[in-house]
């Protein structure tokens, strides 16, 4: 028996506010992250991942340790954090707040040594590496790792078996795949990408982008996907089990006719 497939909720935060994104651009303010953490951590999700995306929209002054502390205090389930991590000290300060794992964002592209340094300090099991992936051609199974800055997507290197191996050799204990091309689309996961990752990665992989709750049972049912876990966005999670216990959200979702309408409700506001 192995560890169970993890169903993870991903919360994106910009300047202290919970937001939702589509194609990695912020489309909607969703409310207070603390309320979201309190609500979502009661739904039997395996983990909660917190992405501070403030850095993509301009210069930020380091990591908001106060916010992480506040959120970690109210989160009884395991938590990971990504955003603005630029040194080993940053990683340690996050772990000390009560976070189990840190995920290193696009910084690793220019500073791959940082993966090794962080991994040596906090262990590879707590060091995840984020790969922002865009589809060049889904049918031909071509993907590339991209960076995102000020809303612009820049393609960097092809996503290959060798790239995954080199990240693992550097000390990555987990890969967090952000499928940018499917972000916020709710089209479901890219099965070719899932197949490729399941075959290529010797470390656990979390895949995000287009995921719905039905994707969770699909990944769970396939034995060859044993190392894969699925991350749902905070709004995607509301279409599943959280719905029953959030009557105000359910009503709002029923009233909403389109995806944009659904997103216009501040689901996690007080």
């Amino acid at each position: 028996m192995r560890a169970e497939m993890r169903e993870i909720v991903n919360l994106k935060i910009r300047l202290g506010e919970l937001v939702d994104t589509k194609d990695f651009n912020v489309v909607q303010y969703l409310g207070d992250p603390l309320n979201a953490v309190k609500v979502l951590s009661s739904f039997d999700y395996a983990e909660l991942s917190l992405f501070d995306i403030s850095g993509r929209y301009g210069r930020v002054n380091g990591i908001d340790v106060q916010l992480i502390n506040r959120l970690a205090k109210w989160c009884p389930i395991p938590m990971s954090y990504a955003g603005n991590i630029a040194s080993v000290d940053d990683a340690i300060s996050i772990i000390r707040c009560g976070i189990e794992k840190i995920a290193l964002g696009q910084t690793w592209i220019n500073h791959p040594q940082l993966i090794s340094d962080i991994s040596r300090a906090i262990g590879s099991q707590s060091t995840s590496v984020i790969l922002n992936v865009i589809s060049r051609s889904e049918a031909q199974c071509h993907w590339a790792v991209a960076t995102l800055q000020h809303g612009l997507i820049r393609e960097h290197i092809p996503l290959t078996f060798d790239l995954i191996q080199s990240l693992v050799t550097l000390g990555a204990g987990e890969l967090y795949i952000n499928h940018v091309s499917r972000d916020g689309s709710r089209e479901g996961l890219d099965r070719h990408l899932c197949d490729f990752l399941a075959k290529s990665s010797p470390v656990p992989v979390i895949i995000q982008g287009g995921a719905l709750e039905t994707c969770v049972s699909y990944v769970q049912s396939k034995a060859e996907y044993a190392g894969l876990s699925v991350a749902l966005s905070s709004t995607a999670s509301l279409y599943g089990r959280s719905r029953a216990c959030l009557p105000h959200c359910t009503k709002a979702l029923k009233r909403a006719k389109s995806t944009e309408d659904r997103m216009s409700h501040n689901l996690f506001s007080n």
């Binding site: 192995r2 169970e4 993890r6 590879s124 099991q125 290529s200 010797p202 656990p204 876990s229």
Partner: peptide, 15 residues
Amino acid sequence: PSNKERISPHIGWNT
């Protein structure tokens, strides 16, 4: 052990 068949580290919920 970590290779294509065996996933390591051990991360997640187990019995």
